[in-house]
Every structure is written in C-alpha cells, then in structure tokens.
Design a protein around this nucleic acid. Structure first.
Lengths: 108, 108
DNA sequence: TAGACTGTTCGATGTGAACCGAACACTAGT
DNA sequence: ACTAGTGTTCGGTTCACATCGAACAGTCTA
C-alpha cells in the first residue's frame, strides 16, 4: 500500500524521454551539481536536503522534479526524507555516452 | 588582407568554451538541425542559406553566431555566401563523446 | 498531540532567449 | 552604376524558466 506522498512521485522511463527534454535538463548548472553529487555517492544515500546548492528549497524541489521527468534520477521515500539515485544504466541505454560526456568534463 | 566582412567573423576556440555554453548551444532544436546537416555533408559545402530551417534568416543568422561562439562550427566567406563546417575533432577534444551522443540519437 | 524536520505546491517576479520585420552591408554579375 | 543574392544588425515582442517567500502536507519523536 502506497502512501499519498509516494503516489505523487511519478517517474519517467528514460526510454520515453526525448533528446530535447534530456538536454534541457542537463543544461542547468544546479541540476548538473545534483547529478555530479549523485554520481559520486552510492545509490539511496543522499536525501534532497543534503545537497549543497545555491538555491532555496522551493527551487531545489523544482530541479529534482525536472530531473525525474527527464529520466535522470529516481526517488524513494524514506520517512520524511526523499532519497535519490542517478539512473545511469537506464539513461545510458536511451542516450549512450551523453551522461558520461557531461559528467566527466565538469567541474569545467 | 581581410575584408570588413571577414573581420567581423570571430571564432571561439572549443578548448576555451565552458560546458554551460556548449550545452546551451546544443539544447536548441534548430541548432541541432544545423549540426545534423553539417555532419551529413562534406566541409565547406553548405552555405547558411541552404539549410532547411523553420525560422527567418534573421533568426538563422543568430543561431549560426551561437554555434560559432560555442566552438561548434567554423565559417568562411566565399563571395556573398558564408560556408560552414562542423568542428568535430576540435570539439571532440574539448568535450569527448558529447557531439556523438547528441548527433547519433537524433532524429528522436 | 505538539513540535521539529523534510519536501511540495502556489502565486508572483525578473531575466534571458528565440523570434520577427526592416534596414543595412557586402559581393558579384550585367 | 544598377540589381539580385546572401547574410548581419537593430529594435521590439513574446514566452518559458529559474527563482523566491509563504503556505501546506507528510513523517517521526517526545
């Protein structure tokens, strides 16, 4: 049985995401910070609030929603927190090489 | 000796372009159409006016300037025309895999 | 059940980018 | 010189998105 909170958590399958959506999601520095952070840690170890970001929590929440809609992250509720993981294998299958190209070159 | 026209044609070295600029340039469908077209033809065979794009020539000119500033294309004057080439090797060196990832997946 | 904590939603604002028509600039042929 | 063709620049409009504060919704603990 899923709670009301979990029900509002809709995920987009990376296979159904178009390139435009993917690139728009990646073309924001805050969202790339989130992805960098996720790529550097184990899955399900980072809650939304634990990221060091130069925006308020409202904006933060918005960015996580965009990443979810682009098939770039998956989220799971754990008590009051929302844990994250980067969907590397799924996204790589939909857009081979894209994530690696973007993540490897940053910080530049 | 360069003409006044050629003097206004400034090119950005891909090595000096930051990821943000590169991704913003790639995150536009019209600009990706241009790049697709360039990737499918030999260098210096396509003038700006020969692309099939859903925008006026003013907007078209703007997009070519953005691509130039992102180090994605090089332009050369040939009489009244301005010929183009995609800077694949240079851009690949600055952002390995990025161009391939973006171009290979389109049309989608 | 009261309070602390985490995250989302709402309404509003500011900024930047895409876009267009018109005017301008350069080139080449007549 | 005139004209046609190609491309840039300018001024202005429109629109999407990042951003914020405030209010709201769950969850957990005391």
């Amino acid at each position: 049985m899923s709670t009301a909170r979990a029900r509002s958590l809709t995920h987009e399958d990376p296979a159904g995401v178009d390139l435009q959506t993917a690139l728009e999601a990646l073309a924001d520095p805050v969202r790339r910070m989130i992805l960098q952070d996720l790529a550097a840690h184990d899955d399900w170890t980072r809650a939304c609030g634990t990221f060091d970001l130069p925006v308020t929590k409202a904006t933060r929440s918005h960015h996580f929603a965009v990443l979810r809609a682009a098939g770039l992250i998956e989220q799971r509720d754990d008590g009051p927190r929302r844990l994250n993981r980067i969907r590397r294998p799924e996204f790589d299958q939909a857009f081979p090489g894209l994530l690696a190209a973007v993540l490897d070159v940053s910080g530049r």
